[in-house]
Design a protein around this nucleic acid. Structure first.
Lengths: 338, 338
DNA sequence: ACAAAATATGTAATCGATTACAAATGTATC
DNA sequence: GATACATTTGTAATCGATTACATATTTTGT
C-alpha cells in the first residue's frame, strides 16, 4: 500500500492541494464545509504528511539535535526525557549524537544545522575542544545553539543550568551544621566548568565559614565511580583525616563509599559523605546518600522550551542568555554529626 | 551567510548539477579531471548537502527511530551507544522516542515510517500494547522493524537478544555449584518476555537439577530497585528461607540487598544474591554483584547493522529472524557457599 | 442596489538533490 | 576509415508540500 499524498486528498475532497495544505496547517482560513470535506478525505485516504517534502519547502527540519559526551552515562537520561517530552508536544523529533563519535568520524557538528538535518542544538557537554567551540561560534545560526547543565565559559551561548554555587554552599553548610569542621572535597574533572564552579564555591564557602582547608583535602576526580575509589585511598592514607567529604557528583560519592567499605570504614560513622545530583540510585544506595538534588527532567524541559522559542520566533525577547534552576538539599543517611 | 547548493557548486566547477551529484555519490563514474574540479568547487563554496532535498528525492529519511519504554532507565544507554555508533558510520541519524510519550500524545508509531521521518525502527520495548503491535504488523514496511533485547512473542518481527535461557541456567548452576539447594527467584514483570523467559528457564533448570522449589520462592517483581526491596521483605518473612536468590535484573538484586542490609542481614553471609545484566554499577555495589553479563553495546551494534542491511538491500538473504548474543558469568562477592 | 472590503479558493512557482534518458566524446576492432 | 562500443556529461522531469499572487465569492455599509 503506497502512502497517499496531498494530491490524493485534494482529488477526493474535490479541492486544490493549496486548500488541503491550508486546512491542515491553518484551519481558520478555510470554510467550515471544506474543512469537513478535507477531514473526511484525509481519513479516507489515510493521508500522512511527508516530512521530507515539508522540510524542504519550509526550510525547517522539525527536529533538534542533542549532543552528549557519553550516551552511556545515566546522568543524562532524565534530561533527555524532559527534552523529548517538550519536543514531541510540538511535533519535533529528537536526534541524538555523542560528541565522541562526531569527533571520531571527523564530522563537523555545525553540519547538522547547515545541512537541514536539525533546526537547533542542545549541547550537554561543556568540555568541547576549543576549535569545536570556535566553529560553533562562527556558525550561521548560533542563536539556535543552547547549552544545558554544562556550558562553555568563554563563549557566549545561552544556557540552562542548576544553581551550582548555591548547591555547593548548601552542602557545605549542611555538613558544618552537623558539627563538621574538617571538610574535604572530591572535585569533578579539573577542565570541566561544573567541576570548577563547584570547587570554587566550596573553597569560598569554607573561607566564609572560617574553616581550615588543607590543600590535600581537595582531591581531583572526574565524576566517575572509579575516581571516587581513588579518592578513598587518598583519604585513608591521610594523617589528619577530614570528618566529612563533599563530592562533586553522586557517582564519586558512591565510589568513595564503596572503596571505604572494602577497607572496613563505615559511612557515616567514620566519615560523612555527600554527593551532588541526586541520581535515582542515591536513594537506594547503602547508606542512602545525602545529596544536592537538581531536577534533571526540568532542565531538559526548560532547555527544549527555550530552544524552540528561539527557533520559532527568533526576534522576540526570548533571547535571554541563561536560566538557572533551583537545587535542594536531600538529607539521607550518609551524613551525621562527627 | 546562506548555505550554497548543488547549483552553486555546478556553476563554480562549470559542470551540470547532475555531474556534481554523481561526483559526490558515485565518484567512479566521472573522470579524474572533473572529480578534481568539483572537489575544489565544493571546498570553495563550502557546500553542504541538504538532507531534506535528498530525502525527498530518494524517498529515504537517512535516519532510524529507536523506541524505548523509558528514557530514564540507564540500562538502555549502552545499547543506544552501540546503535548510534553504527548508524553514524553509515551517515544515518538516530531519532529517539519513548513508547510512553508516543502513547500519551496519541501519535501512532507507524507514522514515523509512513511519513518519511525514519527508514526503520528499533524497538527496545517488548511490552507494547496489543493494538500497537497489531498496528506495526499491519504496516507497509514491517521488514524495517526490529526488536532488540526484548521482543513480542506472538508477532513475527526479527530481533536481537541475549541468551536469556542459557544465562539463567548458568546462574542457577553457579549457585548450585557453590552448594545451594534452596534457591529463590525474583522475576521481572510478569507480562514481560524477559521476565517470563528467565522465570521459565529458572523453573526448568531447578527441575533438571532435581531441586525443591516452593511456590513462595518465586517472587514477582518488575526489574526495579523498589521491587527488590519488596521481595526482601517477603524473604525476611519466610519460615524456610532460601539460601540463594537469583534476580532477573541487577536493579532487583540491588534493591533486595539494600533492603536486607537495612534489616541487618548481610550478603553473602546470610544469603547469596545474583543479578542479570551486569550493569556498570554492579561492580561498584557493596558487595560487588555476581551477575550474568550481556554485552549491551554489542546488542545495539548488531541491531543497527541488521536493520541497515534490511533497509539498504531488502531482498538479500539478510532477512534472518533472530540473532542471539552470548552471555557470560561474572563472579563477584555477592555469592558464596551457604 | 452598488462599491468596497473581507473571505475563500485556485494556479503555479518553488525548495534542492537525484536520475532516466539523450547526447557527446573517446577507444577499440577489423 | 568506418562501425561498434564504452565512457563521460548534460537536459529536464521528479519527489510532495507550501505559499505568493490572482481570482472568485460573500458580506458589509450606505
Amino acid at each position: 500500500m503506497k502512502t497517499s499524498t496531498l494530491q490524493d486528498v485534494a482529488r477526493v475532497a474535490n479541492v486544490s492541494t493549496a486548500t488541503v495544505s491550508r486546512t491542515l496547517s491553518n484551519p481558520v482560513v478555510v470554510s467550515e464545509s471544506t474543512r469537513r470535506r478535507v477531514a473526511d478525505a484525509v481519513k479516507a485516504t489515510g493521508y500522512r504528511i511527508n516530512h521530507a517534502a515539508r522540510n524542504l519547502r519550509t526550510q525547517r527540519a522539525h527536529s533538534v539535535l542533542v549532543l552528549l559526551p557519553d550516551l552511556a552515562n545515566p546522568f543524562f537520561s532524565a534530561i533527555l526525557e524532559g527534552i523529548s517530552r517538550v519536543l514531541a508536544r510540538q511535533g519535533y523529533s529528537m536526534l541524538i549524537a555523542s560528541t565522541q563519535h562526531v569527533h571520531d568520524s571527523g564530522e563537523r557538528l555545525i553540519d547538522y544545522l547547515d545541512d537541514a538535518r536539525a533546526d537547533g542544538m542542545i549541547v550537554l557537554d561543556g568540555g568541547l575542544e576549543t576549535d569545536v567551540v570556535e566553529m560553533l561560534s562562527a556558525a550561521s545560526h548560533t542563536e539556535r545553539i543552547l547549552f544545558a547543565c554544562e556550558w562553555v565559559e568563554d563563549a557566549n551561548f545561552p544556557s540552562v543550568r542548576c544553581q551550582n554555587r548555591t548547591g555547593t554552599r548548601i552542602a557545605v553548610n549542611h555538613l558544618y551544621g552537623l558539627g563538621h569542621t574538617k571538610i574535604a572535597h572530591i572535585t569533578g574533572p579539573i577542565d570541566n566548568v561544573l567541576g570548577q564552579t563547584r570547587k570554587e564555591a566550596f573553597v569560598e564557602e569554607l573561607a566564609d565559614l572560617g574553616l581550615e582547608l588543607k590543600p590535600e583535602w581537595i582531591m581531583t576526580g572526574d565524576f566517575t565511580l572509579a575516581a571516587g575509589c581513588l579518592a578513598a585511598q587518598e583519604w585513608i592514607a591521610m594523617n589528619d583525616r577530614p570528618t566529612a567529604v563533599f563530592c562533586a557528583s553522586d557517582q564519586l560519592a558512591m565510589g568513595f563509599i564503596a572503596e571505604l567499605s572494602r577497607h572496613d570504614f563505615k559511612v557515616p560513622d567514620h566519615v560523612s559523605v555527600m554527593g551532588f545530583d541526586d541520581i535515582d540510585l542515591a536513594e537506594q544506595f547503602i547508606p542512602p546518600l545525602t545529596s544536592i538534588r537538581q531536577d534533571r527532567m526540568m532542565i531538559g524541559e526548560t532547555a527544549a522550551k527555550m530552544l524552540l522559542a528561539r527557533i520559532v520566533t527568533p526576534n522576540e525577547e526570548n533571547l535571554e542568555r541563561a536560566t538557572v534552576l533551583p537545587v535542594s538539599l536531600v538529607i539521607r543517611e550518609s551524613t551525621s554529626p562527627p
